[in-house]
Design a protein around this nucleic acid. Structure first.
Length: 156
DNA sequence: GCCAACGTTGGC
DNA sequence: GCCAACGTTGGC
C-alpha cells in the first residue's frame, strides 16, 4: 500500500465534482508530465490511498482522502483531437499517457491549508512543500500521511 | 495579475 | 549536448 497526493484546480475538477460522480469515482485523466506519468503507470496500485489537493485557488490545501480503484491504463483523452490534452504524437500502439481511477473515501472535516502544512517540521521532505514543486501527482510517506491526518482534528 | 520555477522545444 | 526561448504551473 502506498500513499499519494494528487493536485487539481477546483475550477476544473474539485471535491464537489468528485462527490457528484457516479459511485464518487473518476478517471484521473489529462496528466501530461513524464514524471507523473511514470507514477500513474508503474507505481500506483488499486488500494493505494491519495489525498485530493486543491491548487491554484483561494484556499489551497488538502480536502479529501481518495482510493486508487484502477491501476494505470492508457488515457483515452490523449487520443481524442477534441480534448484539451490531445497529444498528436501519441502512438496508439505505444500509448504515452496513463491514468488511474480514483474514488472518494471521505472529505476531510476541514481543509488542511498549504500554509498550515508549511508550519510543521514533521513534514520536512514532503514533496508538496519543496521549492518550485510542480508535479501534479506525488508520493507521500506513511509518516507524513499519518501526520497530516492527525492535523485534521486540531484547530489548524 | 505578477512572477519564480520548472519542463519542453529546437537551433546550433 | 548546450542553452535560449517559450509555455505552463501555481503560490501569492
Amino acid at each position: 500500500m502506498h500513499y499519494w497526493l494528487m493536485k487539481s484546480e477546483p475550477s476544473c475538477f474539485g471535491l464537489t465534482d468528485l462527490q457528484q460522480r457516479p459511485d464518487q469515482t473518476e478517471p484521473w485523466d489529462g496528466v501530461r508530465n513524464y514524471q507523473a506519468r511514470n507514477m500513474l503507470r508503474d507505481q500506483m496500485q488499486c488500494g493505494d490511498r491519495a489525498f485530493l489537493y486543491h491548487s491554484n485557488c483561494k484556499e489551497t490545501g488538502i480536502v479529501a482522502v481518495m482510493e486508487i480503484v484502477h491501476n494505470g491504463y492508457p488515457d483515452p483523452t490523449a487520443f481524442d483531437p477534441r480534448e484539451k490534452h490531445f497529444d498528436p504524437e501519441n502512438d496508439p500502439n505505444s500509448p504515452r499517457w496513463f491514468m488511474v481511477d480514483v474514488k472518494l473515501i471521505r472529505p476531510l472535516k476541514r481543509t488542511i491549508l498549504l500554509s498550515e502544512l508549511r508550519q510543521h517540521a514533521e513534514l520536512d521532505g514532503l514533496q508538496l512543500l519543496s521549492k518550485g514543486n510542480r508535479l501534479s501527482v506525488m508520493p507521500v510517506s506513511e509518516k507524513h500521511w499519518q501526520f497530516i491526518l492527525s492535523l485534521e482534528g486540531s484547530e489548524g
